[in-house]
Every structure is written in structure tokens, then in C-alpha cells.
Amino acid sequence: MNLQDYIKSIIASLSWLSKQVEFHNKLNLTDINVQAENFYRDLLNLSLNTSFININSIDQNSAAIDLGDQKNRIAIQVTSTSALSKTKKTVTKFIEKKLHEKYDRLIILNISKKSNHTPPTIGDETFKINTKNDIWDIGDLIKKINNLKLHEIESIKTFLDQHLYVKPTESLPRNVDTILRLIELISNEDHPAIGEGTLEEPFPDHKINQRFSDHADFLKSEFFTLYQDYGAVLNAVEKESDISQVKIRRVAQHLRLSSDTLLTKNDGDPKKALTELMDYFLDLLQKNGFEADTGAAQFYIMQHLVRCNVFPNKEVVDG
């Protein structure tokens, strides 16, 4: 969950910065491009474990490149122009200045948005770049960050939080986020219960009115009260989010096993077992640093009770 939060924050931050560059350039306010050189120098060094320096701070007349790492022999041009003519000009200057003798690779980092060039390579027999692998934009950088270790990704998020003047504040409503996080938590493929059990046809009438007849009024009242507030939320989350069917099956499998264990532990009392099940998941969310919407979490578990994934019907038992 921390990884997902960090990546979402990094995407939001870099996307916001990319738009700022785009808008500034449309107004011919190009100072932001110059300021971006040092920003991306530090960001790339964090992300790629490199030692880039700002070449322009050493040589004001430097051509073709803005950042250089002589140890790893990589050069980068930081630009907001994606035209093919600009790319050709950059490579031509790189060769003319014999920079290929210092650097084995030239990367063009577009801080706005790159274009997909038709030629697979640009240059000549002396030096050439691969237009697919050597031209990056924010999307390419995020993919590379996503493959880093958790502590490295956290450092990048912290760097962005500290250096960006405006921090995006968009977030999901807490009830929606609670349900999504519960699904991610319960469907974790590393959980030992994953792959066990099969889904049954649900018989909520038999379950609630017959098997748990002593508690039927409580269970139905609890479900319908929560449904008024969270029914539409859950329906929207399941229809509009990118939750896979695999995750939905995993949720069902885990809930069946864990709820059955708790029901046995509580001598068949669904009220006690349900409370313990909800407390268990709310506690896990809290340990993962998320303050859940308790009602949304409770309704999600109750919905699975009606679907017979909580307290699965092994047989119909009269009250």
C-alpha cells in the first residue's frame, strides 16, 4: 500500500510539473526550462544512481547536452521541444562537438511530452541514438522509478514534495479509498489462503433467516442501514475501478476461510464473529497507515455476508 501511495504521488507531482512547463512555454516564459535542469539533475541521480552534473553551469556555451555523467558516460539534453528537427539538430551538434568521445549514450529527456519519431535511429556511422530507447518523457521516467526499491521510491517522493512549489492535493473520497484498500489488502497474492476453497451458490435467505435465525433481525438491520450510505459507493467502485476478476475471487476465497474460522471460534455466533472480522481488517488498515471509513469497511464485509462469502454455506442449519 505504501508503494502504491508513493507512486501515485510521484505521478501526480511529475504530471503537474509537465503541465506547468507546457503552459509556460506557450506564453514564451522559458525560465522554467533553465530551472528544470538542476531539478532533473537531482531527480535523475536519485532515480538512476547516476552522477550527473549540470554542464551549463561549467560551460555557458555548451551545445547539445545539459547534463553529463562522465563516470557512466551518459549525456542528457533536457528539453521541452519534441519536434524531429530538434532531435536531429541535437544529435548533429553532439557529433560535431565530438561529445561521443566522452559519452557512450545520449538521452533526450522531454520535460513536457515526447513525440514518436518515425526513423528508428538518428545520427550516422559515428554516433546515433535509438528513437525508442533514448528519447524519454515523464512516462518513461516513472516506469524506471516504479522498478526501484521501496526506500528509494520513498526518497524520490520526499524530494518531489520538498522541491515542487505546488503540491497536488487530489485524493479519492475516504469511503471509496477504504473499499479499494480493503480489496487490495484481502486479495494480496502472498496471503496463505490464496487458491483455496471454491465459490458456492449464495443462499442468503437460508443463511440469514434459517441458519442464523436467532440473529437474523440484527444482520438484516445492520446490512440495510449500511446499504443506504454505502450501497451506491460499492457498486460504483466495482463497476468503475480497474479491479480485476482475479482480485475479486481472491477476496471471496480469503473471506470464506477467515470468517469460517472466526465463526467456529465464537461457537457459531455470527454477531461476535462478524465484529471480530471487521475489527481485524480495520486494524490491518490502520497498521498500514490508513485511517479507514469504518462504515464503508463494515458494509463491504456485510455485502460479502449476503453474497455468502462470509460464513459460507456448508449446509443449511435450522435456527
Rank of each mutant, 00 (worst) to 15 (best):
S18L: 10
E291I: 14
Q303K: 13
Y6W: 10
R73V: 13
G68M: 11
G268D: 08
R250K: 13
G268L: 12
S213N: 12
I10L: 10
I122D: 02
I208S: 00
R211E: 00
Q35C: 05
Y300F: 15
I11T: 14
H191E: 08
D69Y: 00
G319W: 04
T131H: 12
S57A: 15
I107C: 02
T126N: 14
D42C: 04
I107H: 01
S115C: 05
S259T: 05
D137I: 11
L109V: 07
L160T: 04
K93N: 14
R41I: 11
I243P: 04
N116V: 15
N116C: 05
T79G: 02
Q70W: 07
S85T: 15
D104Q: 14
K132Q: 14
N209I: 11
E222W: 00
I95S: 05
L219C: 01
T87W: 05
D293G: 02
K132E: 13
V91F: 10
G197S: 11
L257C: 09
V176W: 04
F39N: 06
V251H: 01
I248R: 11
D260F: 10
I156R: 09
L148M: 12
E238I: 05
G123Q: 05
A83C: 01
D5S: 15
Q245V: 09
A236C: 11
E196Y: 15
A252G: 05
T126L: 08
I108Y: 08
S13A: 15
N130P: 11
T92F: 01
K19Y: 04
I65F: 03
